[in-house]
Design a protein around this nucleic acid. Sequence first.
DNA 1: TGATCTTTTGTACGATAGTACAAATCACAT
DNA 2: ATGTGATTTGTACTATCGTACAAAAGATCA
Lengths: 236, 236
Amino acid sequence: MVRKPTSKETARKPNMREAILAAAEELFATNGFNAVSVRDIAQAAGANPGSVTYHFKTKDGLLLEIYRRHCGPMNLRRSELLAAAKRVRDLQDRLEAVVRAYVVPAFTSGSDLAGGGARFTRLRAVMSAEGNEVARKIIAQTFDDTSHAFIDAIHDSLPHIPRTDIVWRSHFLLGALYYSLVTPDRVSRLSRGEADGNDPANAIEQLVQATVAAFQAPALDQAAPARRRTVASSKT
Amino acid sequence: MVRKPTSKETARKPNMREAILAAAEELFATNGFNAVSVRDIAQAAGANPGSVTYHFKTKDGLLLEIYRRHCGPMNLRRSELLAAAKRVRDLQDRLEAVVRAYVVPAFTSGSDLAGGGARFTRLRAVMSAEGNEVARKIIAQTFDDTSHAFIDAIHDSLPHIPRTDIVWRSHFLLGALYYSLVTPDRVSRLSRGEADGNDPANAIEQLVQATVAAFQAPALDQAAPARRRTVASSKT
DNA sequence: TGATCTTTTGTACGATAGTACAAATCACAT
DNA sequence: ATGTGATTTGTACTATCGTACAAAAGATCA
């Protein structure tokens, strides 16, 4: 179905704007923001450096547009999956479903924009590590709502665990998720080839299984820091 | 005790070389490698840009020296703690001790070089995310041994779990560890002030507790991918 | 004190960064 | 066919990057 484009969106190449976005996304996600130049992006997209300025004004504007492009659809998908997960009756099954609803959209690989995808998640991981200012603002105002929704859903499945613990553990989940996308080869290397860190299905199952167990761990009582033993004190 | 310095280590300021290393460590860990200029580092250390070149030749050389300075003592400390942990008789307790031996040196804050410290760990997290070439080489040749030692120790405590699963779960542990050091404020924010993401003791306890439970999760049978339900398929 | 070596300073160079802008080119309506 | 607005190209400007290097300053020992 070839629709007739209006004069507002004509272009010489099929869609140069999209090509630039895709190239920038890939390069930012693998090399970080500062290591990638506008010229690098233009070259990877088969475009002229000036085109980047024309479409996105600044380099920050380009990053901003990448976030705008993905955040909406991704959070929508997560909301749908979360809603479905919340309808699961059995508490144990519901917990797993909720975790899966959080993890799956972050992994589903990214030829389609709608799904969010591993590439965008990796991008977010790298921006978070670099302390990127643009990313920080967007995340705080866009992702915190989603995070709270998931935390609440998980808390509903585990009423006896303090909310504080849930927050910590979902923080760990996000860290593990990010790291799995940033350094998948490390898994292959450490497992001596027995596991494939780049296989999303495998990563998802492993992550879900481990995370569900982590959430189900006994509550960490603030009132009971009297640990049985302290192995960690050999020197001091 | 003021020892007489030889001609090989005299300097105008107490120790400008160390000041540069400390400044670079801090700046790299918070802003990434490429976002920080040699001039930034020199200014933060109260030194002249030329001094950086004099002591470390190149910017890569400076990063390399930071790694060299920390890797040895940190892995040594981990080895000691691991050896102590392995002597714990009870399997459950031993698992926790091993995890703690892995986590604690990564968090212990870093006024002393020997301890490794949170700052250096945060640096490693950022370099890993940026895909830094210098860091990648060092990590593969320095940290993999340590990682294998811990994986083996954990496997000994959990003989019924396949090694592949152990690798995945320790990978998740490292990701959670990194992320906790990179974005501690997110914990405070999401818990609405009830938890302090910047409190190392708290982070360690939460991480150890969650991780031990994750390791103890039932094995993920490769032969049984027939899951009971698939909540994750609402669209496709 | 003066010779010698180490360290710091100051400055400069080439490369590359982000961005601006005029000219060229294209798609489409008339 | 031609005019018009959207897009792409080519190029240039300024700032800053990593690094080099000579001169200045400090420390050490005869």
